[in-house]
Amino acid sequence: KLSKKELESLSRAWVRAMYKYLGPTKDVPAPDVYTTPEIMAWMNEEYMKLTGEKNKGTFTGKPVSAGGSLGRDVATAQGGFYILQNIIKKKKISKPTIAIQGFGNAGMTMARLCFAAGYRVVAISDSAGGIFSQRGLPIEKIIKIKDSEGSVVKFKEAKKISNQEILELAVDVLIPAALDNQLVAGNASRIKAQLIFELANGPTAPEAEKILSARGIEIVPDVLANAGGVMVSYFEMVQNKQNKYWTRVTVLKKLKDNILQEWQTIYNLAQKKKINYRTAAYMVALQRLIKAQK
């Protein structure tokens, strides 16, 4: 494990190696697994030092005090939740049961949002394992335990399960929010969820998706489900460029309006063409790329 000083040195060294290929009009990195706002601030500071530029928009996910955007800390899960809420309403599911694999920023925030909405979060997990209760888990209480003791498995009032077992629970919605390739050919036939909502990047292997689709299990793909983080990173760039900063309410309203519009576009195309949501999302993206090149 790196010390804070070593982590800062590594972060700044990466920028020194890559800064010529970065910039607000070239390539703008955003945070991901294990990347904190402080790390993004170090990187942005190093970039400005190397280039002499004062534009803070080359790195996003920064602390608010360093030019970050309000709402960016919850944007990935919040954007996903807006879509999930819409789907549950469309399907008329009353008090849906939810299982969430992964309890980092995105998974924890999604669990909190689902719990607050009255959904029954029956299982969650982190790198140490998972917990399950058919009655539903007290998410706020478990977050406190996670913060103080390091893992959700320290919660004693639920059954212990593995990260593989959580994927195979009979729930309305399964939310992989950890790492890639969790749903593979070997376990796809045992998945019991009605809907898979990809909050992680690439959690469903292509061969697993074929099996799941053939079984009638819908998948909301990562390119849409976790797009909220990237959307608010774009909002952060805009605010940096204008040097005008929005309220949290404004950021989240813009996020909700934009991501629900994208979801509706993809949903309508999937219904019209009788294709899955991932294919529809890719079609929309390719159509936009072609239009932009003309």
Rank of each mutant, 00 (worst) to 15 (best):
G79C: 11
E168Q: 10
Y277L: 15
N44L: 07
K54E: 14
E218N: 06
I93P: 01
Y234T: 12
F103Q: 05
G57N: 10
G186F: 05
E8G: 03
G67H: 07
D73L: 14
K146T: 10
V74R: 11
L289F: 06
S162L: 10
G80W: 00
A227N: 05
G68F: 05
F81K: 01
A41M: 04
G80C: 05
K294Y: 11
F197V: 00
I98R: 00
V15R: 00
K49N: 12
W246Y: 09
K294G: 14
N276P: 00
N86W: 08
K4Q: 15
E262V: 12
G61S: 08
G80H: 03
D27G: 03
E149D: 09
G102H: 06
A200L: 09
C114Q: 06
V121R: 03
T279V: 13
V28Y: 10
I131Q: 03
L7K: 13
K26D: 07
N86K: 15
L260S: 07
K62S: 09
T279M: 12
T265V: 08
P138F: 04
R112M: 12
V184T: 15
K141H: 12
K90Q: 11
I211F: 03
Q101W: 08
R135T: 12
S151R: 07
A285D: 00
S94F: 09
Q134I: 09
V223F: 04
T97L: 01
Q78N: 12
T97I: 01
P24Q: 06
V238D: 11
G107V: 07
A128L: 12
A185L: 13
P221D: 11
I217E: 03
T204S: 14
A117L: 03
K54F: 11
